[in-house]
Design a binder for these strands. Sequence first.
DNA 1: GTCTATATATAGATAGAC
DNA 2: GTCTATCTATATATAGAC
Lengths: 192, 192
Amino acid sequence: MMATPARGMSARAAQAERTRQQILETAQRLFTEIGYDATSLQMIADEMGLTKAAVYYYFRAKSDIRHAALKPGIERLKSLLDEVAEMRSRRARVDHLVTGLVDFLVQHRHAVMSPAESSEAKHAPDDEQVHEMRWRALSLIFGEEPTAVERLCFDAAFSLPRSLSTLADLSDEELGEALRTTMLRILLRVPS
Amino acid sequence: MMATPARGMSARAAQAERTRQQILETAQRLFTEIGYDATSLQMIADEMGLTKAAVYYYFRAKSDIRHAALKPGIERLKSLLDEVAEMRSRRARVDHLVTGLVDFLVQHRHAVMSPAESSEAKHAPDDEQVHEMRWRALSLIFGEEPTAVERLCFDAAFSLPRSLSTLADLSDEELGEALRTTMLRILLRVPS
DNA sequence: GTCTATATATAGATAGAC
DNA sequence: GTCTATCTATATATAGAC
């Protein structure tokens, strides 16, 4: 779970932690590039010069890798929504949510996994959480009873992470600015 | 390939055509609900009370079912773009594309398959075509050198088909109107 | 900590009976 | 036209040697 080996760890344990982290990064990249279902543990092992069994030493199941890969994004989104919930004006809420999300997206632009689009999407605890947060965000932005158009604007704006792969030619700054501008435009001034 | 058995067909052949069509509809529904990769031929066969081998009699491979399921949408989009290309004003082009697309989406709202999100997405001819049409549509709406924000607005608007499943509570009329309004709002009056 | 070897399940696909 | 039976490949996952 740790990004860096803790102090006091043996050299062996530190190496193990690095290996674990590398598996996670490799898996995350493959999930992003070709999708979760299409990524086999064999591919992950091959890319790292390990065997499947070695991968299983670090993760008990394929779904655990998915869980670990999704975790930082889920945590970030959760705390972002907590912060947003404290804000009074709608404008400030939208602004904070968009800015926070865009910053996270740009930082992880090459490893952004959409939680949906996996055959595990049903009943997996991660996806339950994402689903709940989606509802929470919708309420925070458009109130308890959003109109159909508002719901669509919400979906349109927050579907943009899926488009990251088609924007590889942009620098981090350009990408961030474009994402922020577009999301704000879609979410603010929605016609009734 | 035909939606209805042609005149002069034997009763046996007509029955075969119906079975083929039913397999297609069942598969399409499952592809939409749980995704292409997660749908096995066994599931399709089970839902219809057939065996896998029977399904293979009608379709030589799983990918052929996908191809047949995608075909109507691809054809519709292709002719729509041909029509749009003939129009002079940008406003008319956006209007015609959005209206045509929304009509198609509402009509097939329970069986809309996103061409991407399958492990076959690479090098499958269907996806090549969709990719080309995406570029063509982008050029028709925003010109040959769209800005980053314009590309994002394009993606946001045309990602909306993915949201159909979350709008099951709307009537066809409500859905169509909301889709049309939202897409037009996102695609028109994009800030420079 | 990483390996070989293997268990088990299921995928897509085919051959041939009826 | 639909079936049973089977093939082959590959998936996730485990046991136990080193």
